[in-house]
Simulated assay, not measured.
Amino acid sequence: MSVQRRRSRVLSVLPFAVMGAVALADMATGPSLGFLPLVAVGPAFAPLVGGWRRTACVGVIALLLCFALGWYDGMTAPRRGLMIVGSVIGVTLAGLVAVFLRREREAELDSVRSIAEAAQRVLLKPVPKLAGRLRAAVSYTSAVAEARIGGDLYEVVAAPQGVRVIVGDVQGKGLEAVETAALVLGAFREAALDEADLVEVGGRLARSVDRQLDGERFVTAILAEVSAHQVTFLNFGHPAPMLVRDDGTLDMPEPDSYALPLGLGAHGTADPQPYRTAFLPGDQLLLYTDGIIEARDRGGHFYPLAERAHLLKDHDPETALETLRQDLLQHVSGPLQDDAAMLLLRYR
């Protein structure tokens, strides 16, 4: 059961639990301690979930409980009784107003969310399941509740020179991160089809990002090009890819020296140098963001991605990635603190 569903269940039971506790306390101690006015707390919790009918029903139950407890306590002061009844009615009416206001805000939020989801689908389009001779699968888990995307990005482009991919991680969160991700993806999609060499793709991407990013924003990214049974990488300060060989061995190819992330070209550092390794039928290439390897369990231990490579054994790449994602969520035992994206490539 999700945390949100569990919380909704607790809130739905809370008004009745409070009124039941007040009734038991009043019956146990008698009218001397004056627990009866606390019955109004039940209708106060009612507007948190449900509609106006449920709130009105809780208010009616609270009124009936007031009359029953007043009779049980032998209450002889009509003024005090009227004050208690008036409190319950007043809290119930306030709750009804709160329900209508909450429903209006929820309708506005649903409208905004539908627009945001449409924009997100345009930004992070589903990658093609088949690209050239490769099969591709993607997994994305946003750290923001109910969001489909955040600051991580990915794309797969079947160019004449080979299949070109990018996986990146934007510094920061929120709308600025999404805006930066859109900038990087737009530049990559154009350059991947126009440029003849992966180095030229990276150079054009870096120039575009350096020109349009301001302040201290930057993007770590890794570019890869698969062609002729080998893969070429360009690494802009991004975690090393993971290659799972056909015989089960692992390879984490790294450059001789890491370049700075995209957006920091003004510092005048050297461009990333391409490096290559074999990529044969039966091998698997996993590109990911640091939200995967920096996810911690309750003991503060990072997620051991290399030790979980065997989870990618399923014949269907999407199922394999989902198995790995579920293992990641089980490791952290709760919501992720950072966006987590994974892109898996295999030969058909």
Rank of each mutant, 00 (worst) to 15 (best):
Q326G: 14
G42K: 05
P255L: 10
A118L: 08
S32T: 12
D197G: 05
D110F: 05
A56S: 13
T220K: 09
T249K: 11
P15Y: 01
E307G: 15
L33R: 08
F100R: 15
G300Q: 01
V85G: 12
A295P: 01
D339L: 08
Q284D: 02
L305N: 03
L250V: 11
A137L: 01
D246S: 14
E108I: 09
G202F: 02
M252H: 13
A240W: 07
Q230E: 15
L64D: 08
A181G: 15
T220W: 05
P126N: 09
H267S: 13
A309T: 11
V332K: 10
F279G: 03
R217C: 08
R113K: 11
E294Q: 14
A182E: 02
Y154V: 08
S111G: 13
K173I: 06
D271E: 14
A46Y: 03
D314Y: 06
A94P: 07
R217V: 09
G291L: 06
A191Q: 15
R308G: 05
P255Y: 08
E200Q: 14
I149H: 02
G59V: 03
A77C: 08
A21W: 09
E106W: 02
P15I: 02
V18Q: 00
T76H: 15
S227D: 11
E117A: 14
F100P: 09
G50C: 13
F302Y: 06
A77F: 09
L124V: 10
G74Q: 02
R276Y: 00
R346Q: 11
P274Q: 09
A159D: 00
R133C: 10
A145N: 13
D73F: 01
P31Y: 00
P31F: 00
G151N: 03
D247C: 01
Y154R: 06
Y258I: 10
D246C: 11
G50Q: 13
R164P: 07
K173F: 06
Y154H: 15
G263E: 02
A266R: 12
V18N: 00
A177H: 01
V49I: 07
T289Q: 01
A44V: 12
F236P: 12
A266K: 12
S333T: 09
P253H: 10
M19D: 04
P239H: 01
G268E: 05
P253E: 12
V219H: 04
V219A: 08
F100L: 15
Y258F: 12
V49P: 02
R217Q: 13
G299L: 03
T319Y: 06
L193T: 11
L69Y: 00
S333Y: 07
R298F: 08
L124E: 05
G263M: 04
L286G: 10
L285Q: 08
H301P: 00
A158G: 04
S142E: 07
A206W: 00
W52K: 12
P274R: 08
F188S: 10
A181V: 06
G59Q: 02
E294G: 07
P335L: 05
V97I: 14
E318F: 03
E106G: 06
R308M: 10
F45R: 00
V127K: 05
